[in-house]
């Protein structure tokens, strides 16, 4: 029996277990003797898993408590969002500081250039004299 074939048989058995049917031994009996032991062991193991993995549900008290907590948290979240959305826009300090720095730098450069120009004009006037 190929590995693919065994995969098919095991998946079929899982579907049967989920449908509440007990696993058919037909597949094991039809398997070649060398695959029979492994197939049988894996099918038994799957049946054990199905048996013990019964659905577990939280208690109704826990469910209600968690639901109340979530509603409360969601309420806080909504209030916070509403506050953020209605808050007047505050100037963004990063941009303001950046613009001020840029303005100051431009002013200093203009001052230096003007001073140079003045010096140059003065020296031209002096040499003309």
């Amino acid at each position: 029996m190929s590995s693919n074939m065994m995969t098919e048989v095991l998946n079929l058995q899982a579907n049967q277990l989920n449908a509440g049917a007990s696993a058919s031994l037909e597949a094991v009996l039809n398997a070649p003797p060398e695959a029979r032991a492994e197939l049988s062991a894996l099918m038994k193991l799957a049946a054990r898993m199905k048996r013990w993995l019964i659905p577990v549900r939280p208690s109704s008290a826990y469910r209600a408590r968690l639901r109340d907590g979530l509603q409360l948290a969601a309420g806080h979240q909504e209030t916070h969002r509403a506050l953020v959305e209605t808050r007047p826009r505050v100037p963004q300090w990063g941009w303001l500081i950046g613009a001020a720095a840029l303005g100051s730098a431009a002013g200093i450069i203009a001052m230096i250039l003007r001073r140079r120009q003045t010096r140059k004009d003065a020296s031209v006037a002096e040499s003309a004299r």
Binding site: M6, T7, E8, L10, N11, L42
Partner: peptide, 8 residues
């Protein structure tokens, strides 16, 4: 399907 087989 094949992961299930390998899991077993």
């Amino acid at each position: 399907k094949s992961l299930y087989h390998r899991t077993l």
